[in-house]
């Protein structure tokens, strides 16, 4: 059977947008790369055969697995550096003061991939604690993909992954060698709770956060979905809490509820008077 790849790509893009809000990577090569493993597991001769079959049964388990496999996942430790430095120097100390002695500072790594961002934040909290300061911090890391969440909870990274963005002293301090791989130590693993979250579904159980890292997520979303997802995420941010976005990501229509932090790109504080009901929320298609 002759399959029209352009048509299948258009279908796949519509599927991931509708199911999880994100756009697929550009180009058939990137899609083939992401879905190859799944197609082989299903015993199918190509990714295109699999996508044809998914198009006939878009509510199948296979369709859901394909969406997860296509979710953006490339990440590394301390990605872009500056926001993590700002977290260590400014955000964490102030958030700890705000939280006081009775509750933990709650941090959300939203769209966490295999967990590098969450563990980077955990390392910074741990390093502050090592200096003799009381640090009560809890990190919740969420992703759409079951495989990503599972990997994150295991905290095992290969030699290439631990050399992307991670200084050697932090590797020595926070990891144990396991065979050829490296595993984040149990102190860090205890600090991070990995959960499955689809930004388009209900995630009210996550509760309220002092700090939300939502980086390299909105960039994969069309503008309309972008505002809707950011609005829903921000409903989980405490007044005066911090929102950290990726480079070139902007708050769009939500800018009125946020103040940019001076001296660092992509860091915002939620205005105390920000109210969900003031927001114009475009409806999903």
């Amino acid at each position: 059977m002759r399959v029209d790849r352009a048509e299948l790509l258009a279908f796949t893009g519509a599927l991931t947008r509708r199911r999880a809000g994100f756009d697929i990577p550009r180009g058939s090569g990137a899609v083939e790369l992401r879905l190859g493993t799944l197609a082989r597991r299903e015993g199918l001769d190509s990714v295109w055969t699999m996508l044809s079959s998914i198009r006939r049964q878009p509510d199948s388990k296979l369709a859901a697995e394909a969406v997860e496999a296509l979710a953006p996942r490339d990440t590394w430790f301390f990605r872009d550096r500056a926001p993590f430095q700002h977290f260590a120097d400014a955000i964490l100390p102030e958030a700890l003061m705000q939280a006081g002695p009775t509750r933990a500072v709650r941090i959300w790594s939203a769209g966490c991939g295999a967990g590098q961002e969450a563990y980077s934040l955990a390392m910074l909290a741990e390093e502050r604690r090592a200096r003799g300061v009381r640090v009560d911090a809890a990190i919740v890391a969420t992703d759409l993909s079951r495989a990503a969440v599972r990997r994150g909870a295991q905290g095992v990274y290969d030699q290439f992954e631990v050399q992307r963005g991670l200084p050697i002293r932090r590797l020595v301090e926070h990891f144990d060698k396991e065979g050829e791989d490296w595993r984040v130590n149990s102190a860090l693993r205890r600090m991070v709770d990995f959960r499955l979250v689809n930004f388009l579904r209900d995630f009210s159980a996550l509760g309220e956060f002092d700090v939300i890292f939502l980086r390299h997520v909105l960039t994969h979303m069309s503008p309309q979905i972008h505002d809707r997802v950011l609005g829903r995420v921000m409903d989980h941010l405490r007044p005066d809490g911090w929102l950290v976005l990726g480079p070139w990501e902007t708050p769009g229509n939500l800018a009125a509820d946020l103040d940019p932090a001076p001296g660092v790109d992509g860091v915002f504080r939620k205005r105390p008077e920000a109210r969900a009901d003031r927001r114009v929320e475009p409806r999903a298609a």
């Binding site: 550096r81 290439f160 050399q163 992307r164 963005g165 991670l166 200084p167 050697i168």
Partner: peptide, 9 residues
Amino acid sequence: DILESKFAD
């Protein structure tokens, strides 16, 4: 990537 990242570190 690794060499650049390490030299930056």
